[in-house]
Design a protein around this nucleic acid. Structure first.
Lengths: 114, 114
DNA sequence: CCTTAATATTCCTTGACAAGTATATGCCCT
DNA sequence: AGGGCATATACTTGTCAAGGAATATTAAGG
């Protein structure tokens, strides 16, 4: 799964498909890569469940499937906890600085992210 | 960045470090991999900014750095929007089904995620 | 200083994979 | 049926990265 998205062209393809479905030729033109290259990457993506295709006459329309990237997202969860803890620690630290050195008061923007 | 976390052993190392810092030997034992392998992966991770190390006598303690994984997280953002849109569509669809076929009423659990 | 422990580095081999070129398959149209 | 368009597959080749074995580095302690 991670190996799949390690390839830059494949990530580019996924990013293209996030807005709307595209034919092989569309992708080929937008990403300036050879047709076999596109087809091969699409095959990898399809077999890994990142995309699916439907037939439209001679062309195949490829669209995104959410599951695999959701798994990537799930893998990141513990790390998100880690770094939000770090942000908290930094915040506390900066707050202490603000109190102990009440100086310039330049707007040091601090806010809870959504 | 994606190439870095494409390697399973490296992901394992990162997962180990998320709980607390570890020495090379600790990692070596917990992951059952050879010492040179651990050192080499740690070098890759360090040069890519995923980890940093401090010296403690003969051992080096490695700890996680948040930034690179945050970038991965950022790359996922558009896709998160994509699939939450899909969940919404599915919800609407199922709601329509519930209305048009008021049958068994088996608990088909549906709820807003946090 | 010499030894031992902990980690880093080098060299080598092997396997995987991406890109290119050529060719095959399938579908439309007249 | 045949020709052309869109996509897929086969085969080859070059590149690169991971792992293993051996060796180098650095620190601690007697």
């Amino acid at each position: 799964m991670f190996e799949i998205i390690a390839e830059p062209n494949r990530r580019a393809i996924l990013s293209l498909l996030v807005s709307s479905q595209q034919s092989v030729g569309d992708i080929e033109r937008q990403l300036r890569m050879s047709q076999p290259a596109v087809s091969k990457h699409l095959r990898v993506l399809r077999e890994a469940g990142f995309v699916e295709s439907t037939v439209d006459a001679q062309r195949r329309l490829y669209r995104l499937k959410p599951e695999p990237l959701q798994e990537v997202d799930a893998w990141l969860a513990p790390f998100r906890r880690f770094w939000s803890a770090h942000v908290d620690a930094l915040e506390r630290h900066l707050d202490r600085m603000d109190q102990s050195t009440p100086k310039k008061r330049k707007t040091r923007g601090r806010a809870k992210a959504l």
